[in-house]
């Protein structure tokens, strides 16, 4: 009879904690952005307080939610808000594929765990060279989800009292984090080339493509992987 102890699973709990710890400073920033999403949504002409909270619980994708809320607040059509949000989230197709084999459990559990994938939790879970730590992702994802939903609730309740997260420079925290993580992900010349190409695609498309499309389009830079190895 096979012993369940043959392979000591010492890592899952540790990885989970490690993910949450790494995400902690980001959780503060994500929470404050959640607050600003709540404020924006609960203000006049916004999507409203309860829809905002339900959206944070179910969608859990900051940039897409901000895009949808801003379009509604600006008087845009629902279809425009929906299209912008879903295009922004299209990048989660390749991102989901990249972490697929590192998420534990059957289809239902994977479906639920996949919801914890956002840019930040995905970046924290990355070990380089296409490998990911699923439990780090779960730890980071749960903490960031709590921060995002909690922030939204605080925002819709206390929308007048709160200021702009940009004053604290929190909007500069995200590119800094992405940059720090990018530097750890360049094990080969091909990876450097993919990064440069991805950056250039985004830079070139930002002024001409709808919001969110440039990031999805940058995924095309990964096709460099088809070149001879």
């Amino acid at each position: 009879m096979r012993s369940p102890m043959t392979e000591t699973p010492a890592t899952p709990t540790l990885s989970f904690r490690e993910g949450a710890t790494t995400a902690l400073p980001l959780a503060v920033a994500v929470g404050l952005f959640g607050v600003s999403f709540g404020v924006l949504s609960a203000s006049g002409g916004g999507i409203g307080a309860l829809p905002a909270v339900v959206m944070s619980v179910t969608t859990f994708a900051g940039s897409a939610q901000f895009a949808a809320a801003a379009i509604v607040a600006a008087g845009g059509q629902p279809i425009a808000a929906i299209a912008a949000a879903l295009m922004l989230n299209a990048r989660y197709v390749p991102i989901g594929v990249s972490v697929a084999r590192f998420l534990p459990g059957g289809p239902l559990r994977r479906f639920l765990l996949a919801q914890l994938v956002i840019d930040e939790s995905w970046a924290i879970a990355s070990k380089g060279d296409g490998e990911f730590d699923g439990h780090r992702l779960i730890g980071a994802g749960i903490l960031l989800w709590l921060a995002w939903v909690g922030g939204t609730v605080v925002g819709v309740i206390g929308r007048e009292a709160l200021g702009d997260p940009a004053v604290l420079g929190l909007d500069a925290a995200f590119p800094a984090l992405f940059l720090a993580l990018l530097i750890q992900q360049l094990p080969s010349r091909t990876a450097v080339a993919a990064a440069i190409l991805g950056g250039v695609i985004t830079l070139a498309l930002t002024p001409v493509a709808p919001v969110g499309v440039p990031i999805s389009a940058a995924a095309a830079a990964a096709l460099l992987g088809l070149a001879r190895r």
Binding site: G130, A194, L197, G225
Partner: peptide, 19 residues
């Protein structure tokens, strides 16, 4: 898998630029 391995650097660079 070779393509997927390059998704991280490509998309992270895109996020750096975008953010």
């Amino acid at each position: 898998a070779a393509v997927v391995a390059l998704l991280a650097p490509a998309l992270l660079a895109a996020l750096v630029v975008s953010a």
